[in-house]
């Protein structure tokens, strides 16, 4: 990463942590919920969320759910356990192999062909979402999101799967900022150092699948999104046109994942168009 971008994206850790802790406390208290629940994968994003949640609410008001599938890397579960042990936080392990396999056993037979890895991966992400929202009702807990800004912008996630949540404390942090804060709050070293992976199939890594590194993505996204540079202006900074175009395409093509469903306007006041209230209205 260019030093000037790295400097610009570097966060004052105390200030950022104070803001994020206050955000979690405030939003949970306002909503009338008692605690938060989230999926803990063994990756860096959900590990950071775990540390933030415990800092904000105390461990007794948090709950981590570990949801391995049979092909998940064993290291993922080990790393997730390292987090819950370090934080001594309440947690439950809910394997998702049986429900996901039961679904595909039925649907593969109905469709007459085996599901692609992409469909299986999406189903796993949504199975986890269903589990978390069930725990939400059981524990009176808000679901915390664990998607970072880089993923959200690139659309590198499953709609209504890992992208679904009630509150997302890390959704405005680029991947490099997630790393910085994770380091600051004491996320275990094994998590900080491993290659990021959605772990939906064996040996998957994010950067291999995306075709560029997170550092490259963060840099280009910083100019395109935060600084509103055009493609040409970004390329003029020395980034390859192929990289910048790819990033732009991903951001645009995945806008649908970041929006609520599109509603056909008929009446004078339409949900999502000119019926405008914050969610806090309902609190």
């Amino acid at each position: 990463m260019k030093p000037e971008v790295a400097n610009r994206l570097r966060l004052n850790e105390d200030l950022t942590l104070a803001l994020l802790e206050r955000f979690i406390r405030d939003e949970v208290d306002k909503s009338g919920f008692q605690r938060v629940v989230f999926g803990l994968s063994g990756g860096i994003d959900s590990a950071l969320v775990a540390y933030l949640a415990v800092r904000a609410l105390g461990r007794d008001r948090t709950h981590a759910v570990l949801m391995p599938y049979e092909t998940s890397s064993p290291a993922s579960l080990t790393d997730a356990f390292a987090v819950v042990h370090d934080l001594q936080m309440p947690h439950t392990v809910v394997p998702i192999t049986a429900p996901v396999d039961a679904y595909f056993a039925q649907v593969d037979a109905l469709l007459g062909s085996p599901a692609t890895p992409l469909r299986k991966g999406n189903r796993m992400a949504r199975e986890r979402m269903c589990t978390l929202f069930d725990f939400s009702a059981h524990l009176a807990a808000l679901v915390l999101g664990t998607s970072n800004k880089t993923e959200l912008l690139l659309g590198y996630g499953t709609q209504f799967g890992d992208m679904a949540s009630a509150l997302n404390p890390i959704g405005d942090l680029y991947k490099c900022q997630v790393r910085q804060l994770s380091n600051a709050v004491g996320v275990p070293r094994s998590i900080l150092e491993k290659a990021p992976s959605a772990d939906l199939w064996e040996n998957q890594t994010d950067e291999q699948e995306l075709g560029f590194t997170y550092d490259d993505a963060d840099e280009v996204l910083y100019y395109l999104v935060d600084e509103r540079y055009s493609l040409d202006e970004t390329v003029a900074l020395g980034y390859s046109e192929a990289l910048v175009s790819r990033v732009i395409q991903r951001v645009r093509r995945n806008q649908y994942k970041r929006k609520p469903p599109v509603i056909a306007k008929i009446s004078p006041r339409t949900v999502g168009i000119d019926f405008r209230y914050l969610r806090d209205w309902g609190n």
Binding site: N7, R8, R10, L11, N12, L15, T16, L19
Partner: peptide
């Protein structure tokens, strides 16, 4: 609003 967190002491 608090926005634009950087390495600086203030937002």
């Amino acid at each position: 609003p608090a926005r634009d967190v950087t390495d600086a002491h203030y937002f």
